[in-house]
Design a protein around this nucleic acid. Sequence first.
DNA 1: ACTCCTATGAGACAGTGTATCATCTTAAAA
DNA 2: TTTTAAGATGATACACTGTCTCATAGGAGT
Lengths: 145, 145
Amino acid sequence: MDQRIIKERHKLLRYLEEKGLRLTKGRESVFNEVMATHGHFAAEELVKGCKEHQRDVSRATIYRSLREMLEAGVIRETAFGEKHQHYEHVYDETLHHHARCVRCGTFIEFDDLGEEDRYRPLLEKQGFKVLGHELHFYGICHACQ
Amino acid sequence: MDQRIIKERHKLLRYLEEKGLRLTKGRESVFNEVMATHGHFAAEELVKGCKEHQRDVSRATIYRSLREMLEAGVIRETAFGEKHQHYEHVYDETLHHHARCVRCGTFIEFDDLGEEDRYRPLLEKQGFKVLGHELHFYGICHACQ
DNA sequence: ACTCCTATGAGACAGTGTATCATCTTAAAA
DNA sequence: TTTTAAGATGATACACTGTCTCATAGGAGT
């Protein structure tokens, strides 16, 4: 199995143990489905995906598991003005951000430069435990000018 | 009246005229309520706010007006990992960012450090005209740990 | 007054996410 | 092994946000 997935799995296990929770078949299915997904995904896509590729897991369990994986740092939110929440897993991708054209809505992706790290100590001084961050630029793309 | 609000009002009027629409009492109420709001706001807050401070405008009209003001460039979306869309008016360019607790949803605000400026040339080299940016941290706040 | 187009409110509707609760499972104690 | 307590799950009801439809109202020009 992919080394990176094993690492993420450990992350999840550590989190669960810390909370006194177990890695059940339900949670495992959600984890597997998430890891099998490329790019961004929505919760409802997972509901369908789990039913198809894994075992039939109820919506309640999927939403619960997603929240746990979020807190475990296995996935992160990528909200960008859509009507529903989007996620992506953190593992194989280099951290990237998005610039969105306010006219046509298309995205440009660009790599993280680590510039935001200076904010972390500020937040942690306030007792805020940082799990991740997103940087969104908005503007007008080349085609729309 | 605030000079900036007058300017925004003109923006809206130009847009409406261009579309062959009228500045009705309903639209005006929504506009006024938006301009009277500080910081971010959600659509449903406007529904209540209009009823309280302006005239009783139906939800349908408010959502419709919001979309128009969005296209007119009077407000813009500020997407967080939230269940509903948030907006803010454009004239009041905020220089702060947000960290959101994934457990309780509360926000911590922090000032912009200008760290993101290194991204601008990268984007502009691609022909992307930057209008602004938002930085979102997510994690777990002090109270929720 | 007539006509055409826009504006509006009421309410039905769909989608996303949450809360409840009865039931099942598991780990560990006895 | 049996008991027990806590966590896990699914079904389902529910709340909320946002959209759509449709009947009616209103304004501008003829």
